[in-house]
Every structure is written in structure tokens, then in C-alpha cells.
């Protein structure tokens, strides 16, 4: 790392400690090879973005990191632990420290917003004390700016509101690492920008490191410290937003079509 970037990182609170390390990740569904030797490093405090077109395997990548999908080959270390070999109990303990914002928000339809937020607390045995639960729910609802939705059902919320509640549910466990699966997809640009700003605000407040998966260059521009382009299952290019902007690579250019 050169002196310039070191300085930048010091200013943004990025350290050299690696919180996520992926090496040679391979995942295929039958004959459909989705990831074929993908590498990734996430440093503490960093916002790493993985850019890839639809169907390139972005969701598959972070689901492998969370072990929602079993990788075929390679190694994945998160917060110093080898994800692929953990037993169920250790995996659950690790998952408390990793937040996951789902592409579709994934709020439980049969539960109110409040119950949605309490669910991870109760299930991970963080707390069952009603007062403490209440306080935590209040805190995250205020953090995402939706305290009035507490008793509502997900079906009564707009897409942007669902995304915010999804974010609140992710943050209620105070994760050290957060994986965002297309946080702005399906939202209008204004709401999308609000979500990105919220992510950045919460990131500072909760001091998280994140991997943001997207094909949205606005996210790249606003939030990413570093960008990896995922193409044909591998790391295609890596760099800052300015680097990609200046690139002549046809794959990279194709993301700038509308810019």
C-alpha cells in the first residue's frame, strides 16, 4: 500500500486487519459454474463493493460467505474463523457478528415490524428481557428513521421502508461486518441515495466493515472505498471509483452505459 492510500485510510478509520478473506472460491450448480476462483479481502472499517451484472453470482458470493450456500472449493475466513469447517453452534455464534441485508429485505410477513426486529435477539439468545428488547428496538427504529412503523406489518410498508426495516433488523445485533445484497435495487434513485446515506451513517455510528454487492454505480460512487468487478466467476478488475471511471476495459465500460 502506498503512502497516499495509507493516509486516506487512516483518515477514514480503515486498518490493515482483514475481517473477511476469501481465497479461490468456487461454486457451481450442476454444470453452471458461477464462481471460479474468486478472491476477496475486506479490511476493518472498509466499504468494499463487488460490482457485477445480473446473474454474475454476486448473491451466491455473499451467501457462501454466510454459509447459506456451501462452497465447492476455496477458503473463507471471517473474523479469523474458517467458515467452511465450523460446526452449527460456532457458525451461529459467528453469524451474530455478521449482518446480512437481503436483496428482497426478507421481512417476515406474518410478524409486525417489532416482532421482526425482536426475532434475531430472541433466537440468538442475546436478550429476552422485555425492557432491554424494547430499548434495542427503539434504538434501531430511530436510527433508520421509522419509529412510527413499530406495530405495522411488512405488507403495509413501501419498498424503501422495508429496506430500512431490513437494515434495522440487520443492525440490531450490532454486527462487526455487514453484507449488503443490492441495497438500492428496485428503489427509485432518490430513495436509493437515502438508503446509501443511511448505510454510511450507520456504518460510522456502529463502526462496521461492509461488503456491498451491487450493479448500481451510484452506490459505488457514494459509498465504496474500493471496488472489485466480478466477471465470469473471477476478479476482473479492482480499484477505486475513479480508477474504474478512467478504465478502458470493455467489461468495466459496460457499467457506465447510463452515466
Amino acid at each position: 500500500m502506498d503512502a497516499q492510500t495509507s493516509l486516506e485510510h487512516a483518515a477514514t478509520g480503515i486498518t490493515d486487519e482483514r475481517v473477511v478473506e476469501v481465497r479461490g472460491l468456487r461454486k457451481a450448480f450442476g454444470s453452471n459454474v458461477v464462481l471460479d476462483g474468486f478472491d476477496l479481502d475486506l479490511r476493518r472499517g472498509e466499504n468494499l463493493m463487488v460490482l457485477g451484472k445480473s446473474g454474475s453470482g454476486k448473491s451466491v458470493l455473499i451467501k457462501c460467505i454466510m454459509r447459506l450456500l456451501q462452497a465447492d472449493a476455496g477458503t473463507i475466513r471471517v473474523l479469523g474463523q474458517d467458515v467452511l469447517t465450523l460446526d452449527q453452534e460456532a457458525l451461529d455464534r459467528l453469524r451474530v457478528r455478521i449482518g446480512f441485508l437481503f436483496q428482497s429485505s426478507a421481512l417476515y410477513d406474518s410478524m409486525t415490524v417489532e416482532e421482526n426486529l425482536e426475532f434475531p435477539l430472541r433466537r440468538h439468545w442475546i436478550t429476552r428481557d422485555p425492557k432491554q428488547t424494547d430499548a434495542l428496538v427503539d434504538e434501531v427504529l430511530n436510527a433508520v428513521g421509522l419509529p412510527q412503523t413499530r406495530r405495522m406489518y411488512p405488507s403495509e410498508l413501501s419498498g424503501g421502508m422495508k429496506r430500512r426495516i431490513g437494515l434495522a433488523r440487520t443492525l440490531i445485533l450490532k454486527p462487526e461486518v455487514v453484507l449488503y445484497d443490492e441495497p438500492t435495487t428496485g428503489l427509485d434513485p432518490i430513495t436509493g441515495k437515502e438508503i446509501v446515506e443511511l448505510i454510511l451513517k450507520l456504518q460510522r455510528a456502529y463502526n462496521t466493515s461492509s461488503i456491498i454487492i451491487s450493479h448500481d454505480l451510484n452506490v459505488a460512487k457514494l459509498a465504496a472505498n474500493r471496488i472489485i468487478v466480478l466477471h465470469e466467476g473471477r476478479n476482473h478488475v479492482e480499484g477505486s471509483y475513479a480508477d474504474l471511471r478512467a478504465s478502458n476495459d470493455p467489461v468495466v465500460r459496460s457499467f457506465f452505459i447510463f452515466m
Binding site: L68, D92, S104, S105, A106, Y108, D109, F119, P120, H124
Partner: peptide, 17 residues
């Protein structure tokens, strides 16, 4: 079915369930 396609089942798994 709708819990599956909207990733609610994955979300449960992530929540230690």
C-alpha cells in the same frame, strides 16, 4: 413458497434458527 423466494427462510437461518 413465498418465504422461500423472498429469502425469509435464509433470513431465519442467519438469525440462529
Amino acid at each position: 413458497g413465498s418465504m422461500k423466494v423472498t429469502e425469509q427462510i435464509d433470513a431465519m437461518e442467519v438469525s440462529g434458527t
